[in-house]
Simulated assay, not measured.
Amino acid sequence: MIRPKIPSNPLPTGLLTPIVPAVYEPQAQVPAVCHCQHPAPAAQQAAAPAGGSAAVDLVKRHPVLIVGGLVVGAVLAIATFLAIALVAVAVPIGALVMRSLLKDLRSNR
């Protein structure tokens, strides 16, 4: 059976120091003493709306966000289509230029 290799940390001197996992010992945290007036922490968090999630609530309240998202999406889609069209036009033009250059090289011989 294959035996696992003992992890070691090779030093430049050639000595091997075995790696010993660090033991975490939690320490008691002492609260900082300050002389300012802090408000008491809230006993309960605000209750979630019974009608649904916060995302649905946000959509109901802010239709401008929906319109803004659609506008940004449309702009990105148009930019992508323009980039594809530019590449689709540039590749054949490059091929015609290359063919013309190669044709001139062959005719000069």
Rank of each mutant, 00 (worst) to 15 (best):
L76T: 10
T17L: 15
A50D: 14
P18T: 08
A47P: 06
Q27D: 10
A77M: 02
R61E: 01
P31N: 02
G14R: 02
E25K: 06
V67W: 11
V33D: 15
P63M: 03
A42M: 00
T13I: 09
P31M: 02
V71N: 07
L76V: 09
S53Q: 07
A74D: 08
H35M: 11
S53M: 04
A48Y: 00
A85Q: 15
G14H: 04
C34V: 15
P63T: 04
P18M: 11
H35L: 11
V23S: 10
I19D: 11
A42Y: 02
V23A: 11
R61L: 03
F81S: 04
Q37F: 11
A22V: 14
V87F: 11
H38E: 11
H35A: 13
V56W: 07
A90W: 06
G14T: 02
F81D: 04
A28V: 14
A90F: 00
Q27T: 10
A50M: 10
Y24F: 10
A40F: 07
A48Q: 04
V20N: 14
A90N: 07
G73K: 01
F81C: 06
A22E: 15
I66S: 07
G52V: 00
Q45A: 12
V72I: 11
P49V: 02
V67K: 15
V87W: 10
A77E: 04
L58H: 02
S53N: 13
S53Y: 04
V20P: 12
A90L: 02
V71I: 10
D57V: 06
P41Y: 00
P31D: 03
V72E: 12
V87Q: 13
A74P: 00
P21N: 04
V59A: 03
V56P: 01
V89S: 11
L15W: 05
F81K: 08
L65P: 01
E25W: 03
V87S: 11
A79S: 13
E25D: 05
H38S: 09
D57I: 04
S53K: 07
A40P: 08
A54D: 08
A74Q: 08
L15S: 09
A90S: 07
A54G: 01
V71R: 08
A50C: 08
A43M: 10
